[in-house]
Simulated assay, not measured.
Amino acid sequence: MRIDGQCHCGFVTYEAEIDPGAVSICHCADCQRLTGSPYRVTATVPRAAVHLTGNPPQLYTKTAENGRQRLQYFCPECGSPLFATGTGDDAETWGIRWGSINQRAHLRPVRQIWCASATDWFGETAALPGKPRD
């Protein structure tokens, strides 16, 4: 599936070819802290499938809970998280942050990882009262 995306302010833009079946949810403590949310949704792709079309993102290197270094790319202007990858052999796979993908409404997660760190209320949000806008 051909996608395009951007950060919130539009400073960093990209295009990619992705497999819609490679979208997952991560509940790890690092993803919770880096997003300020209970989990992160990511589309995993080969590095060669991602093409920057705008300005370059900023890089932050984080050592994950499992000891691996994770390279976190984000917009230097608005701070939106965009991509993550690893080092060495792990650098061949990139994770595109679901919220930055313009076609995200067509991408549903197919698996979850780090479920031991999931909040105990994950999955109960559909039962909460809600408004269409606020």
Rank of each mutant, 00 (worst) to 15 (best):
P46N: 07
R47L: 11
A48T: 11
A48I: 03
A48S: 12
A48V: 07
A49L: 01
A49K: 02
A49H: 10
V50Y: 01
H51K: 14
L52N: 04
L52R: 03
T53H: 00
G54H: 02
G54I: 02
G54T: 04
N55Q: 15
P56Y: 01
P56K: 07
P56A: 13
Q58G: 00
L59C: 10
L59R: 13
T61S: 13
T61Q: 12
T61M: 08
T61C: 08
T63E: 13
T63Y: 02
A64G: 13
E65D: 15
E65N: 14
N66L: 07
N66T: 11
N66S: 13
N66Y: 08
G67Y: 06
G67Q: 03
G67F: 05
R68Q: 10
R68W: 01
Q69D: 14
R70M: 14
R70P: 00
R70G: 00
L71H: 14
Q72S: 10
Q72H: 13
F74Q: 02
F74R: 08
C75K: 06
C75Y: 05
C78L: 11
C78R: 09
C78N: 11
S80A: 15
S80T: 15
S80H: 05
S80F: 07
S80D: 07
P81D: 03
L82S: 04
F83P: 09
F83N: 10
F83H: 08
A84C: 09
A84T: 12
T85D: 09
G86E: 06
G86T: 06
G86P: 03
G88Y: 06
D89T: 10
D89N: 10
D90S: 07
D90R: 10
A91R: 08
A91G: 02
A91F: 02
E92Q: 14
E92V: 04
T93G: 00
T93W: 10
T93K: 11
W94K: 02
G95W: 04
G95S: 12
G95R: 05
I96V: 15
I96N: 04
I96E: 04
R97N: 07
R97E: 07
G99E: 02
S100D: 06
S100I: 05
I101L: 03
I101Q: 01
Q103E: 14
A105L: 06
H106L: 13
H106F: 05
H106K: 11
L107D: 03
L107T: 06
L107S: 06
P109H: 12
V110T: 13
R111V: 02
R111N: 12
Q112A: 14
Q112F: 00
Q112T: 10
I113G: 04
I113L: 09
W114R: 05
C115R: 12
C115K: 09
C115F: 00
A116V: 09
S117R: 11
S117W: 05
A118L: 06
A118M: 14
A118F: 08
A118N: 08
A118S: 15
A118V: 07
W121Y: 15
W121M: 08
W121R: 12
F122W: 15
G123V: 08
G123T: 09
E124F: 10
E124H: 15
A126N: 06
P129A: 10
G130C: 11
G130N: 13
G130L: 03
K131W: 13
K131I: 10
